[in-house]
Nucleic acid binder design. Structure first.
Lengths: 153, 153
DNA sequence: CAAAGATATTTTAAGCTTGAAATGAATCGG
DNA sequence: CCGATTCATTTCAAGCTTAAAATATCTTTG
């Protein structure tokens, strides 16, 4: 590839990145707004609840942190707040006094079901401009970026 | 479209959103890491400097806030820190004692040039898995989402 | 001109986020 | 068994972010 063509591809990727960032920020902001105004909650709390909903047996703090790719200290704070709300509970882990298992409460599960339904509808509304065929194609491209990034880690 | 096909397209869009979010978070985290470890700065400061670099005559606080789509209070804090570092300066605006014009200092401009060069190379490295043709196509799709979101605002 | 409304910015309170340090507990090698 | 290391979690300090309230100034209108 010539130097000129390389430079052009570079500028195109930079533009793509800026647009990708702008679009995902716009969608994310809309979701945060709606979670806040319609349900008085936040995206981080929703994310933690979603992870817990997929593991009814409970998850250790470190496992939650690993799955959501956020720091341990971050999970501590979010679970603290979910506990205050009565949506999650910490339980001692038999055989390891260092660890804590976190579970949704009944109230938390019911609340999450409501949130998840609304969330899926919102995403569909916000991303309505993309057809299924386009979605599949973009996902493939993003997958190749994600795989690349995974390797670098 | 049948109910079944609609539901399927809905699930595909949700998956696309989750992948979009994951990928852009991964790229953004890599960029934040490198700005921090290699230059001791942050993405918000980089973003403000980038906006200021494009307007050498200076920008008012409110204009900065509007362009970056962040709150006024947020800009106050970031500009405070850039000022402490000696990378930006606030100036009174002739004819409006409420307003402040912000500009990069000479030091700030030199610093930003270094950052911007590194930033562009990083984005190219991180998004290297995407060819120019794919990039162009994805940008079109994202544009349609962004336009849609613009209208909803 | 004075009151009312609009505009520019800062302040405040609350939450999210991180990396690093601290704590307490488990495990491992000798 | 004991000292060293590793592991799970929390605490801490700093920065980013927002919405809402507070300030100060400008503009419009009666």
């Amino acid at each position: 590839m010539s130097v000129e063509v390389q430079a052009k591809a570079g500028k195109t990727r930079l533009r793509l990145w800026l647009k990708l960032l702008k679009t995902s920020n716009a969608v994310e902001t809309a979701l945060r707004d709606r979670l806040r105004t319609e349900f008085g909650t936040t995206l981080p709390r929703f994310d933690v609840m979603a992870a817990l909903a997929r593991s009814p047996e409970g998850l250790k703090m470190s496992e939650l942190s690993r799955r959501l790719r956020v720091s341990n200290g971050n999970v501590t704070g979010i679970v603290d707040r979910l506990e205050v709300e009565g949506h999650a509970e910490r339980h001692a882990v038999a055989g390891d006094r260092r660890a804590m298992e976190v579970r949704l409460t009944g109230k938390g599960r019911a609340h999450f079901d409501t949130l998840a339904t609304a969330h899926e509808a919102w995403v569909n509304e916000l991303m309505g401009a993309i057809t299924e065929a386009e979605a599949a194609r973009i996902m493939e491209d993003l997958d190749s970026v994600a795989r690349d990034l995974e390797e670098k880690r």
